[in-house]
Design a protein around this nucleic acid. Structure first.
Length: 433
RNA sequence: GCCCUGGUAGUAUAGCGGCCCAGUAUGCGGCGCUGUCACCGCCGUGACCCGGGUUCAAAUCCCGGCCAGGGCGCCA
């Protein structure tokens, strides 16, 4: 069969439903796919087959074709005639004359992929590849792929260059999160917690760069929104100021969501994802505004203290959607962030309700000031020797942000647990599969 | 790292000292059904996390273990 020219051609086009004369009444068609469900009746059976992430109904009238091997999760090939009918899910079905089971399940599955009783996430993650065959997940991860595609589309159109920076790094820390140590031949190395320093350096050569890649955090956080390995969309650009960066980020988010709603509305609807309101400008509050609000509405909070998740939940509920918190206290920010004055910084977080999606700001480009930043955050200049050296050769004023792609997908899909939107999540407790 | 909660057929759940050798739905096996769409109907199958204790009596109460879920903190 695979030697059949027509078939090879179709495989190359990524189509496993092969209809010689198109989807027309009476056309010959064959389909390769996975059995999702079987509804057997006395004289005929309806089988829903997944092919190429779409559902196709096949009708089997010849009882001899209903072998015991035809079960949910069987991989089959079937050939027959197309019939156009409103009674079929997508307006057509295939009346099968011949059928082969290419791969039959060896065991009963731990859960029924079509059931409305959704098994606990922990069990589903143990059998993730099977879980991902659930129609809900097929749609969810299709949206995730589209989302990344639209991010790339947007940034590329704004003349950003996509780059990849090392994930194995030597420098212990840029401060903040704990790192995963590992042996690099005979040296101590770490998994990168972010591409921060590299992307900054790259503005000197490419001016505008972005990277979509993994970041690693060895934090013992056990929450619904933290992972040990996450995907970050990092953007960095020369000459952009705090307001420019917020404009860019806001414009990008709106571009991506508009695309999703326009081009993938069906899929969005199928997973019952919320339709996010992006008609208005995202409000921009200063850190100090938020502190004032917390003091008035939640509890006493000193200016300069970090905002806890409780504070952000309360404030976010009050705002209701996307918003920025800008001009954070300098002492809460890493060494490379540009000071606004003695106490505050040119920085911002993009929030959706209580969830932090992105963090960014202007960066220091003066090497003397950068040394001061290192000192301020208790880091040694020695560890950043190579990075500091770069700043001697014409580092432009620059800024950028990092967006948590997984968290963004939580917002897009309405998932409450970040693990739902990651194929194979890594957290404190889970390293397999 | 600290705190709280929970583990009942393959899955999702009810029961919370005796009405329970554990109920329901779904799955699985069988039979019936002329077009279904989580098809339907009937029959069957299959479970109280592990170890100790309290009690006349434990799925139910207590202690320990293992596993899981959630909150706080850290962090993004």
């Amino acid at each position: 069969m695979v030697n059949d020219n027509k078939l090879v051609y179709s495989y190359l086009r990524g189509k496993m439903l092969i209809a010689q004369d198109g989807i027309n009444e009476g056309s010959e068609a064959e389909v390769y796919g996975w059995v999702l469900s079987i509804r057997e009746q006395k004289t005929l059976s309806f089988v829903i087959v997944y092919e190429n992430r779409k559902q196709v109904q096949i009708v089997i009238k010849d009882k001899k074709l209903m072998t015991s091997q035809l079960k949910q999760n069987s991989v089959i090939w079937a050939k027959g005639t197309i019939k156009i009918t409103d009674k079929a899910p997508n307006g057509f079905e295939i009346h099968v004359r011949s059928l082969k089971v290419l791969s039959k399940p060896k065991k009963l599955p731990p859960f029924n992929i079509m059931s409305t009783d959704i098994p606990a996430l922990d069990l589903r993650l143990d059998y993730r590849a099977l879980d991902l065959r659930r129609p809900y997940n097929i749609n969810l991860f299709t949206l995730r792929s589209k989302t990344l595609q639209y991010f790339r589309e947007y940034l590329t159109s704004k003349n950003f260059l996509e780059v990849q920076t090392p994930k194995i790094i030597a420098t212990a820390s840029e401060g903040g999160a704990a790192l995963f140590p590992l042996m690099y031949y005979d040296k101590q190395a770490f998994l990168a917690q972010s591409p921060q320093l590299y992307k900054e350096e790259l503005t000197m050569s490419f001016e505008r760069v972005f990277e979509i890649g993994p970041i690693f955090r060895a934090e013992p956080s056990r929450t619904l929104k933290h992972l040990s390995e996450a995907i970050s969309l990092d953007v960095e650009a020369a000459f952009l100021k705090n307001d420019d960066l917020m404009n860019l980020l806001e414009d990008m988010i709106k571009y991506v969501l508009n695309k999703l709603y326009e081009k993938d509305g069906e899929t969005v609807k199928k997973i019952k994802a919320p339709l996010l309101d992006i008609s208005k400008k995202f409000p921009r509050y200063s850190y100090s505004d938020v502190v004032k609000w917390i003091n008035k509405n939640v509890e006493e909070l000193q200016e300069g203290e970090d905002l806890s998740s409780k504070h952000l939940e309360a404030f976010g509920e009050n705002v209701g959607g996307f918003y920025f918190i800008k001009d954070w206290p300098l002492k809460l920010k890493p060494f490379y962030i540009q000071p606004l004055d003695k106490d505050y910084s040119s920085s911002f977080d993009l929030m959706y309700k209580g969830l932090e999606l992105s963090s960014g700001g202007e960066r220091v480009h003066d090497p003397t000031l950068l040394r001061k930043g290192l000192k301020r955050t208790g880091l040694s200049a020695k560890g950043f020797k190579y990075h500091l050296e770069v700043y001697n050769y014409g580092m432009p004023p620059h800024g950028g942000f990092g967006l948590g792609v997984d968290r963004f997908m939580m917002v897009v899909t309405g998932a409450e647990n970040i693990r739902e939107v990651v194929l194979y999540p890594r957290d404190v407790r889970r390293l397999v599969p």
